[in-house]
Design a protein around this nucleic acid. Sequence first.
DNA 1: TCCTCGATGAAAGAGCCTCTTACATCGCAG
DNA 2: CTGCGATGTAAGAGGCTCTTTCATCGAGGA
Lengths: 195, 195
Amino acid sequence: MPKSAYHHGDLRSALLEVTAQLVREKGARGFSVSEAARRVGVSIAAPYRHFDDREAMLAAVATRGFTELQETLDGVADPGDQVVRAVAIAEAYVGFALADTARFEVMFAASIDKDRHPELLECAGRVQSGLQDALRELVGDDPAGVVRRAAELWSIAHGVAALLVEDRLAHVVGPAGEDTVVAGAVRAWATGLAG
Amino acid sequence: MPKSAYHHGDLRSALLEVTAQLVREKGARGFSVSEAARRVGVSIAAPYRHFDDREAMLAAVATRGFTELQETLDGVADPGDQVVRAVAIAEAYVGFALADTARFEVMFAASIDKDRHPELLECAGRVQSGLQDALRELVGDDPAGVVRRAAELWSIAHGVAALLVEDRLAHVVGPAGEDTVVAGAVRAWATGLAG
DNA sequence: TCCTCGATGAAAGAGCCTCTTACATCGCAG
DNA sequence: CTGCGATGTAAGAGGCTCTTTCATCGAGGA
């Protein structure tokens, strides 16, 4: 809600939104502070009042993405069977990645310095925690085991998502058949946990 | 071997080398054609005689990386036990990624347009083929099954590698303990294939 | 031997970008 | 109603990519 012609009123939010939009359209590399400012209709220097630099704008989008990812994973219902549940969580992860591939890439972009944006590491920690909670019943009481298995499940889901996002699995999966890879992998993995 | 002071003689190779070096030092985003030219000691326009653009230089480094990855995976000995073999291949994949994380990122960088550099998709196909060969004994005769399982193994290895490269698994693995995640995941997966 | 030609280099510039510095304008607290 | 902090603009330094134009080289034919 702009309070006046001069002062935007909520420039920070507006910039965040247009940044997310630009990333979706052109990818992280295609995004520029200049164009974000232009689209919002402010001068090129204005964004620097709200964000340290270009990287900080991308980091903010990434952080927001992690929050939504967390909600998505938390929203997966427990179907009773713990193997089925693990599969469902991994499928939700992959679905999230494919829903907005550019944002997913920004969330895991190497170009963002984690020392300057420690909140990103926290987000990763929360994903890890959520998976641990979900796996406790499947894995058993060993705390170290739960931690390790959560990392494994995350790795499987993330690997499928990353390769799909990068179009490296095109030969394998037919159209709309993406989930068979992640489902197959997680099912085998979860089955193998018992044996 | 410079043939003269004016003509470099092997500028293309020299640029490739310094590009790989720059990527290792500063990451894909930190790399610039200008600095590569400066380091080799030629004008800024010279690289454009040998590469279409900046992206082509990165793509060349990525392609070379895929070749070496292929060799690394092919070089994994068959220890007899097919589960152990799958684990060893995945560990080799992760080891390759950690040996030069920046190059690994470039190999899977979204910023490189695959339409303009189809050789990168071919490389991915070769990795896929290699894994299929390695898994044939473990999976059995079903050709479609081999294809799917190879994609799964690749996904697991790639997921662990990507998360380790992005420092997202720091809480889980102690120093030098990275391999436990990929080994555990692949072992469970391969075990579950049978059951 | 000389000369031409194609390949490979340099020089210079257009246009874009990030980020900084100095200044203008606003709303609000006292 | 006044002064101050927050938030905007203007202008510019310095860097980058890529293009265009020109200079220089090596090699092969006359």
